[in-house]
């Protein structure tokens, strides 16, 4: 199991990703500088970490989407390789057009850091197979631009094809505007591409995987990935 973690100027969750994948999960985890034209040979999973790549210049993720390493991430995704983008990584995947939509400024205009609850909408993905549909888990968010937006027609298409992987919810799993921290349409916290191998999410599962540091709500996603890659 080999994981590549692209690192951009301004990435600041790269070490969380390296810790979760490398130290906690025990995977062969390699940071990859954004100027590298190629991912390490044999990369199974690309984990695009959070942060403020290129200082969020122009739009969050817009410049990072053009970095040399991203061309190889696209090739990896086109070949069916797994790609997980968290927070800024989600924004980068949208700007790179590996996922639909855009992440706008939070409706409150504020940077929000909070523990939120997510409901699993798809439990049949390589990222979620160790979870159950409808299951609720707790993860932190920390972002200013997490307000997921799509044109109304495209939003309907995304929902119709089951593109929503996670939705913000109450601790009991209820859905509603009151539980959406950032204004995201339909309470969408994470989405997956049509093929099911590229997932982007605003919350940070990699921050809640090490029992020595506290809660472990993010482990389900990493256990799912372990199972998916063991299957090959």
């Amino acid at each position: 199991m080999r994981v590549a973690v692209p690192v951009f100027p301004g990435s600041n969750c790269d070490h969380d990703a390296l810790h979760a994948c490398g130290t906690v999960m025990g995977w062969d985890t390699i940071p990859v500088w954004h100027q590298e034209p190629r991912l390490p040979a044999g990369t199974d999973l690309v984990f695009i970490p959070g942060g403020f790549s290129y200082g969020d210049y122009l739009r969050c993720g817009a410049i990072a989407a053009l970095a040399p390493v991203m061309a190889d991430v696209k090739r990896h995704a086109d070949q069916g390789g797994l790609v997980l983008g968290v927070c800024n990584g989600f924004q980068i995947l949208c700007e790179a057009q590996l996922l639909p939509g855009a992440l706008l400024r939070n409706a409150s205009l504020r940077f929000i850091h909070a523990d939120v609850h997510l409901r699993v909408e798809r439990a049949d993905l390589p990222f979620t197979s160790a979870l159950k549909a409808g299951e609720v888990f707790q993860v932190p968010i920390a972002h200013a631009e997490g307000n997921f937006t799509l044109e109304p027609g495209d939003l309907a298409d995304l929902e119709a094809r089951g593109g929503v992987a996670f939705r913000y919810c109450s601790p009991k799993g209820e859905i509603g505007e009151a539980f959406v921290p950032n204004g995201a349409m339909n309470g969408i916290a994470g989405i997956v591409n049509v093929r099911g191998n590229v997932l982007g999410m605003m919350p940070h599962p990699e921050r809640v995987v090490d029992p020595r540091l506290g809660p472990t709500g993010g482990l389900g996603i990493f256990r799912s990935l372990a199972a998916a890659l063991a299957r090959g």
């Binding site: 706008l104 400024r105 939070n106 409150s108 205009l109 307000n147 937006t149 109304p152």
Partner: peptide, 10 residues
């Protein structure tokens, strides 16, 4: 036009 502009609103 349809996109919420919280900055403009503020």
């Amino acid at each position: 036009p349809g996109i919420l502009d919280p900055q403009g609103k503020a």
